[in-house]
């Protein structure tokens, strides 16, 4: 392919190739502080490709390819090329990563212990994690939380944070403007803007943390918290994991120990500031 780069995020290294210059230039800027793939070896390849040669120029649309692909993925406009690259890396992890149990969750760390926030899109977990990352917590990851299959610790995977819609302005108010990517309007997920994690989150990305608290936030509801039964938590985490089934017995063991040792609470909150305050209160109450 004409343009490409490699980069390493936590334990995984990627090679991204593109028929166009722009998406790779965006990645180079935003991932400037990340190391390249060690010795050039990338675990996964992502391709941003034009389906026909002339489609590089005429109504350019980006087809997402790579080692792992979805059969019916719709093409994106070239203006959303950065989003395509991010989606491509997510897809490789979701479908191909086997070294950790992957939970669809954000995570932050304090004093060596990890707070994990899981939930559907729109639950506010990305925004909460990004806000906490600006307030003394270290961001471990936005899209995926990686649980080590042997030590049960949380492994950092500090990708760009993908802020959506109302979450964008909330984080713009507290984070350095230089750390934001271009605002992408009218993507399939609405408006999106990527945030580069703080420098210490990138520098310390190979430092694991012990999981201490799991929250299921839900944005836009009257404030309430509820302790989850272990069996409900187990079931919901199997659904929130992209590779639980593929990991087989080791995934079962890791998840069983996680559910046994980490308290889990559902957290409904009505607005960002109240959500942050409630998260920090629950952390003090359950972790210290």
């Amino acid at each position: 392919m004409r343009h490409g780069l490699t980069l390493k995020i936590g334990p995984a290294a990627f090679r991204v190739g593109s028929d166009w210059r722009a998406p790779i230039a965006d990645l180079r800027t935003l991932y400037a502080d990340y190391p390249p793939a060690p010795d050039g070896f990338a675990d996964f390849t992502v391709r941003l490709e034009a389906k026909r040669p002339w489609r590089r120029f005429v109504r350019p649309s980006v087809h997402l390819g790579g080692d792992y692909m979805l059969p019916d993925a719709l093409p994106l406009s070239l203006a959303h090329g950065l989003l395509a690259a991010e989606m491509g890396m997510n897809l490789q992890m979701a479908l191909g990563w086997r070294r950790h149990l992957l939970i669809h969750a954000s995570a932050v760390e304090k004093d060596g212990r990890a707070l994990i926030l899981t939930g559907e899109s729109g639950s506010g977990k990305s925004t909460l994690a990004a806000m906490l990352g600006e307030r003394g917590w270290r961001l471990l990851g936005d899209e995926f939380t990686l649980l080590d299959l042997d030590s049960d610790s949380v492994r950092g995977f500090p990708r760009l944070v993908s802020l959506k819609n109302a979450g964008i302005a909330a984080v713009e108010a507290v984070a350095d403007a230089a750390r934001f990517g271009p605002r992408l309007e009218a993507t399939p997920k609405g408006a999106i803007r990527h945030l580069v994690p703080r420098a210490d989150a990138i520098a310390r990305m190979d430092e694991p943390a012990a999981p201490a608290l799991l929250l299921y936030p839900r944005y836009g509801f009257d404030a309430a918290t509820r302790r989850l039964a272990k069996s409900e938590n187990f079931m919901r985490l199997t659904q929130a994991s992209t590779n639980y089934v593929a990991l087989g017995e080791r995934g079962f063991g890791t998840l069983s120990r996680f559910v046994e040792s980490v308290p889990a609470l559902a957290l409904d909150y009505s607005d960002g500031e109240a959500g942050i305050a409630e998260v920090e209160r629950l952390w003090t109450e359950h972790v210290g």
Partner: peptide
């Protein structure tokens, strides 16, 4: 093989 050649090998093997 160096790392970059392994990257290509693995991509082709997966395909």
């Amino acid at each position: 093989f160096d790392g970059a050649r392994w990257t290509r090998l693995l991509s082709v093997a997966r395909a």
